[in-house]
Simulated assay, not measured.
Amino acid sequence: YYRPDEHSPTETWPAMIAAVTDLDGRITGAHRTWLDPRRRDKAPIDTPRRAMGDLLGNAVRFGIDSEVMAAGEGIETVLSLRQVLPDMPMLAALSAAHLAAVLFPDTLRRLYIVRDNDPAGDGARDSLIERANAAGIEAIVISPSLGDFNEDLRSLGLDALRMEARLQVAPQDVARFTALAA
Score class of each variant (00 low, 15 high):
A175H: 09
Q83T: 15
W13S: 07
A59R: 01
D173W: 07
L56Y: 00
A93M: 03
A139P: 13
M16E: 15
R176S: 04
R176W: 02
R32K: 15
D173Q: 05
D46I: 15
L156G: 08
T12Y: 14
D54F: 09
S66P: 03
L81Q: 04
A18G: 03
Q172R: 10
L23E: 02
L108Y: 05
I113E: 01
Q168Y: 06
V20K: 00
S80C: 13
F177G: 00
T77H: 12
G63C: 08
R162Q: 15
V141A: 06
A120P: 05
I75E: 04
D36A: 06
T107L: 14
T12D: 10
P14Q: 13
P144V: 10
Y112A: 02
F177W: 06
S155N: 13
D152L: 14
A134P: 02
S95L: 03
D159R: 04
V84D: 01
R26H: 11
G123K: 15
E138W: 06
A101E: 14
E138L: 09
A43K: 03
V84E: 08
D173G: 03
N150H: 15
I75T: 09
S95K: 01
A100V: 01
D173S: 06
A175E: 11
D46M: 13
M69K: 01
A179M: 12
A92N: 06
T77A: 14
N58P: 05
D148N: 15
D41F: 05
R154Q: 15
F62I: 13
A59N: 01
T33N: 09
G53R: 12
D22G: 00
K42W: 09
E164T: 10
D54E: 14
A92R: 04
R109E: 12
V20I: 11
D22I: 00
R38D: 13
A92K: 01
A181Q: 08
D173P: 00
R125E: 14
S127I: 02
D118I: 11
T28N: 06
P89N: 07
I17T: 12
R131T: 05
G121F: 03
V114S: 09
M88R: 08
R61I: 04
L85Q: 00
H7K: 11
L94K: 00
L158F: 15
G74C: 08
R3F: 05
R176A: 11
D36K: 08
L55A: 02
L91K: 00
E151M: 12
I75L: 11
P4N: 11
A175M: 11
G29M: 03
R176T: 06
D22M: 00
P4D: 12
D122W: 08
L158N: 09
A96W: 00
M90H: 06
L108V: 08
D152E: 10
A19T: 04
H98R: 10
E67I: 02
S145P: 03
A93D: 01
A30R: 10
S8I: 06
L91C: 14
G25N: 07
Q172S: 07
E151G: 06
R166D: 09
V84S: 02
P37N: 12
D24N: 09
D152R: 08
P48S: 11
